[in-house]
Simulated assay, not measured.
Amino acid sequence: MSELHVDPAASRLTIHTRAVGMLARLAHDLEIAASELRGVARLDGDAWTAELFVPAAGLRVAGVLRGDRVDPDALSAGDRRDIERRIRDEVLQGAAVVEVRASGATRDRADVRVQIGPGSAALTARLAARDRGEGAVGVAGSCQLSLTALGVREVKGPLGAFKVRDEIEILFDLTLRPAAG
Rank of each mutant, 00 (worst) to 15 (best):
L176A: 04
E154P: 11
W48K: 08
A47M: 12
D131M: 00
E154C: 14
S76Y: 08
T148R: 15
G94A: 07
D111W: 02
S76A: 03
E134S: 13
G45M: 03
I32R: 09
R107N: 14
E84G: 08
L176E: 06
H28V: 03
D89H: 06
R80M: 04
Q115I: 08
D73Q: 15
D7N: 04
G78M: 12
A27T: 06
L92K: 07
V137S: 05
L43P: 01
E154K: 15
E36D: 14
H28A: 15
D7L: 02
T17M: 01
E51F: 06
M1D: 09
G67D: 08
T148Y: 04
R126T: 09
M1T: 08
V152S: 04
R69D: 11
E169A: 15
I116N: 07
P118W: 07
V40R: 12
L23C: 12
R101E: 11
L37Y: 04
G94K: 07
A27G: 03
M22F: 15
E99N: 11
R130K: 06
A74H: 08
L52R: 12
R80I: 08
I15Q: 03
R18W: 07
I116L: 15
E134P: 04
D108K: 09
G160F: 01
R86Y: 08
A27P: 02
V91T: 13
L52M: 14
D79C: 05
E134F: 10
T17I: 02
V64S: 00
A41M: 12
T49Y: 01
V54L: 00
I168T: 05
R177S: 11
V97P: 01
A9L: 10
H28M: 09
R85V: 11
A136K: 07
V137Y: 01
T148D: 10
V70Q: 00
T124Q: 13
